[in-house]
Simulated assay, not measured.
Amino acid sequence: MERVALRTAAVTRGAARLLAALGHAVLREVPLADGRRADLVCLGARGEITIVEVKSCARDFLADNKWEEYRAWCDRLYFAVDHDFPQGLIPADAGLIVADPWGGALLREALEHRLAPARRRAVLLRFARLAARRAEAAADPDGAADTLSPD
């Protein structure tokens, strides 16, 4: 695995651990209804939906403008980066998590932009169905292999 992929995996793991410790249910690599794929989608205890976009380096951040479209699918948007990332690049209204393979720290809360009820329901159903399919595939890899699509 190349260095950038290792860094991305480390930050993803640490951010997921942090969010789980904060009480969120976390799914990785979640396809959204618009065809995008979120690095982490998290469901809070009160039904709040958080998306975390993992950035491995400044070049990764600067080359990717699609993250702005994730706001339409969550109540809060965060970026997760490693300790060496130039944090000044992260937009002020997005949350900031600094992570390594063992965990992370929430440095800045994201501004809230509540989803409309119909959109929330659609995202929650997608989250639940994907989580159930992944759990079944883990329990019965041969029987559930073809059921991992989000819908």
Rank of each mutant, 00 (worst) to 15 (best):
M1Y: 07
R3V: 13
R3L: 13
V4Q: 14
V4N: 11
A5C: 06
A5G: 13
A9P: 08
V11I: 15
G14R: 05
A15Q: 06
R17D: 02
R17F: 07
L18K: 09
A20Q: 12
A21D: 15
L22N: 03
H24S: 08
A25S: 14
L27Y: 03
R36K: 13
R37P: 05
A38T: 03
C42D: 03
C42Y: 02
R46Y: 06
E48G: 14
E53K: 15
E53N: 15
V54M: 12
V54D: 03
V54N: 09
V54C: 14
K55F: 03
K55E: 08
K55S: 02
S56R: 13
D60I: 04
F61Y: 14
F61N: 08
L62I: 13
A63R: 15
D64S: 11
E68L: 15
E69D: 15
Y70V: 02
R71A: 15
A72E: 15
D75G: 13
V81Q: 07
P86I: 01
P86D: 01
Q87G: 05
Q87V: 12
L89T: 04
L89A: 07
D93S: 11
A94F: 02
I97N: 02
P101I: 01
G103M: 04
G104V: 01
A105I: 03
R108P: 01
E109H: 10
E109S: 07
L111N: 10
A116T: 01
R121I: 05
V123S: 05
V123K: 00
A131M: 09
R133Y: 09
R133W: 11
R134T: 01
A135L: 13
A137N: 10
A137T: 00
A137K: 13
A137L: 10
D140Y: 12
P141I: 05
P141F: 04
D142I: 08
G143A: 10
G143L: 09
A144C: 11
A145L: 11
T147P: 00
S149V: 08
P150D: 01
D151H: 09
